[in-house]
Design a protein around this nucleic acid. Structure first.
Length: 755
RNA sequence: GCGCGCUUAGCUCAGUUGGUAGAGCAAUCGCUUUACACGCGAAAGGUCGGGGGUUCAAGUCCCUCAGCGCGCACCA
């Protein structure tokens, strides 16, 4: 089945091995053969008697790549690690399932397509309308999908394509709606007027985690609203002061105690303000003048102060980051212009007491790069602090019937050890994030994504999986944060909600996936999406299915360029994995990404490393040529081994154990290097060299023994190397394990891992 | 401000539980030796960031200092 050359004559081992190794031809041919063999699908493995139906399971979801274009080296790194895990598990006889899929990546994809349309047609999404715009996005997404899927195949991933999913397909939509309704009915999802992070460039809200803070030098102005105002305040944003309704000071600040509770009317930059002086614990008396101008409508902390002191709020900035104030000189101006106008006014009035350069962090939107404005808006939130009754017995940290918040569920999953994070230092990072988590704003004003399953008619609100009966209902136009749908990924890909309750464990077939493969064994992903994704999956899974989503999380680092910089489009330093593969082969690329790259550590790609493992592939090819041409009629029977060779075999068994142990403990980076080192510097340099005199000599028994040990060790070495370099090992394997017409008897990928 | 990571051969980096340092590339010398010049053999190269401690023994554990990087918070 491996040989698809179409020739009727059996291929002569030496003939094919005598040609140099052609990774491109071999890799494409082998992947095709694997797919036709069907063993990426555990059901087929069971059906063909390769895997025991009762065997322990290994399941993992592919972190769905965003359909925003193509894969980068980071994705290639991820795919390499994951395929090693999967192939190792499969060879150990486990029922092994790896589920592919892609992520619609709402904001990222929409932003990308908006950019393309604007560049090519000078049109914005509103010029096209929701329907036409979505059509464009879907076309783009589908093209990206095809590219990505092709890349995953090129990498050699042994993933079950028959179960491929998409975060925005019909089944996942049902999962999203079901999840939303459950949370809505239980009061965990609510709609409220709050200060949110508004991205004027992307015209949407974003969550706290989608903020990127950039350090910037800016001026800190110290001034009074008016000459007769008793307290001077400091701010970096004078333009927002036209929205102030209070000045806050620390309660124990003796300088200002006499003013607390007093109210003042002032004319500030052409706007009438009514300012109350309040005392609040959160004010730092050592910063600036120790007094804060409170702008409740445009600052999260000020909003909170305003709530505590029942202060009114005055919105003065709109969705386009323009001023909306009574003063016609300011009205309609962008915030930056408004700042200058206010500063000029302050200067002319001689109200400025101090101007100093300070460095502070400016919030920008992760995807669009735009400056984020805190604005008061009516949005949907997930309440992470509300207590709900835990219905499950499967959570170690929390009893059935016990009240727990989503936050507590998230903490318990990891604190109890039910879910382990590798490397464990990230557990601390995780706890810190969860403990400080605020309600999650899940509504977005973009068009691409899951529309919120809520309908309005007058003052009525309706939430369900299906639209309400009757006329006059309008669906909420917002869509959900993309991480809401990816948070469901570990079980939405296994059939939840349709079959979760009806699935039968032990019965093969995708309709029973939830019973057979959940919780997944491991989740492998980059550490930079620990909060975005890993934490959200734990939230969704513990709440919705009452179980952890995975038993372990393996976090890999970021692949950087030669200079150690993050890969980014603006730097133009992204290397296309397909280009690398066509130059060095997928096997060599996998090895160079894997060797020496431990969990949680960043790595660099280098031409030298790629070259080194391409050389290794060639070396292996030559080893195979030597072994096969010198052991042609050998049966691998241990009885033929003399005492010296038995000792060599024993040493190899020790090495096998060590490698197995490394892989079981996720030390892929070590295992890869060791097997490389073993094959080259022990097997080739020592074993082969030592046996050469015997192989070319006459002694029958010793010669047979030498031939036999070479063959046994080489065959098993191929198995050990297979997870790392699947293509070349499979190709070499096929030479020695073929039937009379040259077809491979069994794929190496389903051989049993050596003991 | 809090936390984390890194600092090992000229360069890029490994070093899993503490037992007198490894890889790739580069550089030196010698080999067209019948598996492989994408190779083979040989030699060379490191006070494992500084200081202190624990230990029979530390790159590996503890303390401390320095440089670089990252995350979180603050960001009036």
């Amino acid at each position: 089945m491996i040989d698809h050359s179409g020739e009727k004559t059996p291929p002569n081992i030496n003939e094919r091995l005598l040609k140099p190794y052609n990774c491109l031809e071999v890799e494409d041919r082998i992947y095709k053969a694997w797919e036709e063999g069907g063993y990426f699908n555990p059901d087929v493995c069971i059906k063909d008697g390769i895997t025991d139906a009762q065997a322990e399971y290994f399941s993992m979801v592919l972190p769905p790549p965003n359909v925003t274009g193509s894969l980068h080296m980071g994705s290639a790194f991820m795919l390499a690690i994951e395929d090693v895990m999967v192939r190792f598990a499969r060879m150990r006889g486990k029922r092994t399932l790896w589920i592919p899929g892609t992520d619609h990546a709402a904001i990222a994809t929409q932003t990308k397509v908006e950019g393309i349309i604007y560049k090519e047609e000078k049109k914005r999404r509103h010029d096209l309308g929701r329907q036409e715009f979505l059509k464009r996005v879907e076309t783009f997404a589908s093209e990206s999908h095809d590219t990505i899927v092709k890349q995953i195949r090129k990498m050699g991933c042994s993933i079950d394509w028959s179960r491929e999913a998409f975060t925005l397909d019909e089944k996942r939509s049902l999962a999203v709606k079901t999840a939303f309704k459950r949370m809505y009915d239980e009061g965990l999802i609510y709609r409220a007027h709050r200060i949110v992070n508004w991205d004027p460039k992307g015209q949407t809200t974003i969550s706290d985690d989608e903020l990127v803070y950039k350090a910037e030098k800016t001026k800190l102005y110290t001034f009074r609203y008016a000459k007769n105002f008793p307290i001077a305040i400091s701010t970096t944003r004078p333009e927002t002061k036209v929205g102030d309704t209070a000045v806050a000071v620390h309660p124990s600040d003796t300088r200002y105690q006499k003013y607390v509770g007093k109210e003042y009317d002032v004319e500030f930059a052409g706007v009438s303000l009514h300012i109350k002086v309040v005392a609040d614990e959160t004010v730092e008396s050592t910063f600036g003048t120790g007094a804060v101008g409170v702008t409740p409508a445009h600052s999260q902390v000020d909003w909170e102060i305003a709530e505590r002191h029942h202060l009114p709020l005055i919105p003065i900035i709109d969705e386009y980051a323009r001023m909306t104030v009574a003063n016609p000189h300011l009205n309609g101006k962008k915030v930056a212009e408004a700042r200058q106008i206010v500063v000029d006014w302050l200067t002319s009035q001689k109200l400025i007491e101090k101007e100093e350069e300070i460095e502070h962090n400016v919030a920008t939107a992760e995807r669009t790069g735009g400056m984020v404005e805190p604005l008061p808006k009516l949005q949907w939130f997930v309440n992470v602090n509300a207590k709900i009754k835990n219905q499950s017995e499967r959570l170690t940290g929390i009893r059935k019937g016990q009240d727990a918040s989503l936050k507590e569920l998230m903490l318990a999953a990891v604190k109890s050890g039910q879910t382990k994070i590798i490397p464990d230092r990230f557990e601390k990072v995780y706890f810190n994030w969860v403990e400080n988590l605020r309600d999650w704003c899940v509504s977005r004003q973009i068009w691409y994504g899951h529309q919120i399953p809520v309908w309005y008619k007058g003052t009525e609100t309706y939430c369900d999986i299906r639209p309400p009966q009757g006329d006059g209902w309008t669906q909420d136009s917002d869509t959900l944060d993309t991480w809401f749908s990816s948070g469901l990924w570990t079980f939405s890909t296994l059939g939840w909600p349709a079959t979760a309750e009806t699935a039968v464990a032990g019965k093969p077939g995708s309709e029973n996936d939830f019973a057979n493969y959940h919780p997944t064994i491991i989740l492998e992903t980059a550490y930079d999406i620990l909060f975005f994704w890993v934490a959200r999956m734990i939230l969704m899974s513990t709440y919705l299915v009452g179980d952890i989503p995975f038993k372990a999380v393996y976090l890999h680092g970021i692949v950087r360029d030669k200079e150690g910089r993050k890969i980014s489009k603006s730097l133009g330093n992204n290397t296309d994995p397909l280009e690398v593969i066509s130059k060095y082969g997928a096997d060599a690329m996998r090895m160079s990404l894997l060797v020496g790259t431990g969990p949680g550590n960043d790595s660099k790609i280098s031409e030298e490393k790629l070259k080194a493992y391409k050389h290794f592939a060639n070396k292996l090819w030559n080893i195979a040529r030597f072994v096969f041409s010198n052991t042609e009629h050998i049966h691998t029977d241990q009885k033929n081994l003399g005492p010296e060779d038995l000792k060599k075999l024993e040493q190899f068994r020790d090495f096998t154990k060590e490698t197995t142990d490394d892989l079981e403990h996720y030390r892929f980076y070590l295992a890869a290097e060791k097997i490389y080192h073993y094959l080259w510097h022990t097997f080739a340099d020592i074993l082969i060299e030592e046996t050469k005199p015997l192989l070319f000599g006459d002694d029958g028994a010793e010669k047979i023994s030498a031939q036999t040990v070479l063959r046994i060790i080489f065959n098993d070495s191929l198995k050990l190397l297979h997870p790392f370099m699947p293509f070349i090992t499979e190709e070499i394997w096929s030479f020695s394990n073929t039937d009379k017409s040259g077809n491979a008897l069994h794929f190496l990928m389903v051989q049993r891992w050596p003991q």
